[in-house]
Amino acid sequence: MPVTTAPAALLALYDREMRRGARPDGPDAVVERVGRVVRRTAPAHGWNGIEWSGFVSAREADEAIAGQIAHYTSRGLPFEWKLYAHDEPADLGERLSAAGFTAGPDETPMAAETDALTLTDSVPDGIRVVPVTDAAGVDQVAEVHERAFGDDASRFSRRLLDALTTTPDTVAAVLALAGDVPVGAARVELTPGTSFAGLWGGGTVPEWRGRGIYRALVTHRARIAAARGHRVLHVDASPRSRPILRGLGFAPLTVTTPYVYEPPR
């Protein structure tokens, strides 16, 4: 694949390999194609949701929405319908809202071929980047996550430790340390048999932002992905990270919105 692949072609490849061809991300996760929906069902601390849908009519969409609500509700699981701007029908987001889903903030999926990235091996003064290999490291990643994003990291940290323990070929995590203090963290998810590696959870604690830590963490993860044979990096970029990623060579592909359904208590 040439390093000049257009964003539209990368999006088509992503739809084919990562959405329609989604694979389990852990030993207890199940990916199924049910009609024109690809869904992932995992334990409560895992990610549960709809990876892809391709409806040919509004009626088919409504029936599928009801079916997925029944599937996850019967298991007592909240789930996410990850809606992409090019998904059909065009009013699918409105139909999800009408069915009881809550829309989260939009994100911008971006992608880049590893050979086309502008990377640097430099790290900010006083910072070292180290791999995460054990529960103590996962605890430090969770500490950064909570300070950087302001939300609870207990489910995420359990999922990361599970992956590092049972399927270490599918994930790698890194920490940025100032001395022995964790100030940045991130992970890369590597999907065997695909072109893609996903950058997730990249965060820096507030007092260390603006010094190049996020860029250094992207570089480290890009090198891990390339060494393991993944040619394309993808990331759901926030407004804060988009300019940095553009500078490194990432291009926006589309817009995605998470629609979350909470089962009645």
Results as ranks from 00 to 15, higher is better:
E143N: 05
E146Y: 00
E146M: 13
F149A: 08
D151A: 05
R155Y: 04
S157T: 12
R158A: 14
R159T: 09
R159H: 11
L161K: 02
A163F: 02
P168T: 11
A172P: 00
A172C: 04
A172K: 05
A173T: 05
L177F: 01
L177C: 02
A178F: 00
A178E: 14
G179A: 02
D180M: 01
V181H: 13
V181Y: 08
V183Y: 09
A185N: 05
A186R: 10
L190A: 06
P192I: 09
S195F: 01
F196D: 03
A197M: 06
L199W: 06
G201H: 01
G202A: 13
G203I: 10
T204R: 02
V205N: 04
V205W: 10
E207Q: 14
W208R: 15
I213M: 03
A216P: 12
A216L: 07
L217I: 12
V218E: 04
H220Q: 12
R221K: 12
A222L: 11
A222P: 13
A225R: 07
A226M: 01
A227H: 05
A227T: 07
G229H: 14
G229F: 11
H230M: 11
V235N: 11
D236T: 01
A237T: 08
S238N: 00
P239K: 06
R240V: 15
S241C: 00
R242M: 07
P243N: 04
L245I: 01
L245H: 04
R246Q: 12
G247P: 11
G249L: 09
G249D: 03
